[in-house]
Design a protein around this nucleic acid. Structure first.
Lengths: 156, 156
DNA sequence: TGAGATAGGTTGTGTTCGGCAACCAACTGG
DNA sequence: CCAGTTGGTTGCCGAACACAACCTATCTCA
């Protein structure tokens, strides 16, 4: 009972998940930065994820992004402004709602994203290649589920 | 081929991992903040992870933390200073190296950490309870492996 | 033993991120 | 047509780091 090492009396799977998430989150910034620069030298790391989501859905409203990533709409607004300034996404008026705007990738944005995606995938693959296919899928599914279920508790 | 939606032509497991990580990372800040406040009202989110790691190992050097989390030692230094100011960790001279210091949890730090850990675990559990035990373990292992292998590519 | 080289920490500076809140515009429902 | 709500923008601010300069202690090796 001397040191705090006894905290390890029971390292539950929960603890492990928590610890690994902590590590991942701290390292994430660095990893993300490299990725974003691949797309466009002036692209901020955070904007990459938004852009990626726009590509995935084809057309989104800013508030959708805000909900999906669980971040403030103010931040989204700024990131989107940046993406637009860089010519990576464009805004279209939403036919169904005069207040809203639909975000779409510009051709240039699409091209750059695809190109960068290739490079990034290569790097990710370089690491995950040694994994069995099933493990990669499993990680994806588990993360997805985790996000989905944690997301619903927003107001904890 | 009109919109960028065709980017979904092949959503590989790699893509899913990437996407889910992106979501996770964006949400992380918020989640972490709540946790840290549980330990001590003035505790900054980032410091919680460090403190947690100190508890796990019992005694660490700042540079170990820097390596482990992959963040700059400057940041670690500041966080540690904060933790010390709050009386949560203490510094001891390293008997083996005059330059270094060993960080240990104070009794108060240990108490608070344990208490907060309980609360947090309850919340995490509330979500993960519906998971099969094996799934939680699997997520932990996969994340751990992911971190380990990605960590070794530091200079990509 | 003494001159680098190197490792552990601290501090100053700048940037990125994103929460909070005040605000405008447009939609919705009496 | 007035109130309440929702989509978005902007100002303000703190947190979290990266980067780099710097100090000190240790190590190395001739």
């Amino acid at each position: 009972m001397t040191s705090a090492a006894q905290a390890s009396r029971t390292v539950t799977p929960y603890d492990e998940v928590e610890r690994e998430l902590a590590v991942l989150l701290r390292r994430a910034r660095t990893m993300n930065r490299d990725i974003a620069v691949d797309v466009h030298p002036d692209l901020q790391p955070a904007a990459y994820a938004l852009m990626s989501r726009v590509a995935e859905l084809g057309s989104v409203r800013a508030s959708d992004l805000s909900d999906y990533f669980g971040i403030d709409k103010g931040g989204v607004s700024r990131q989107v402004a940046l993406l637009e300034r860089l010519g990576l996404v464009a805004r279209e008026p939403d036919p169904d709602d005069g207040r809203a705007q639909r975000l779409v990738l510009t051709p240039d944005g699409g091209t750059r994203l695809t190109a960068a995606r290739e490079g990034r995938r290569r790097r990710l693959r370089a690491q995950l290649d040694r994994w069995a296919d099933g493990d990669v899928s499993a990680l994806g599914s588990l993360l997805s589920r985790f996000n989905r279920e944690m997301g619903s508790v927003t107001g904890t």
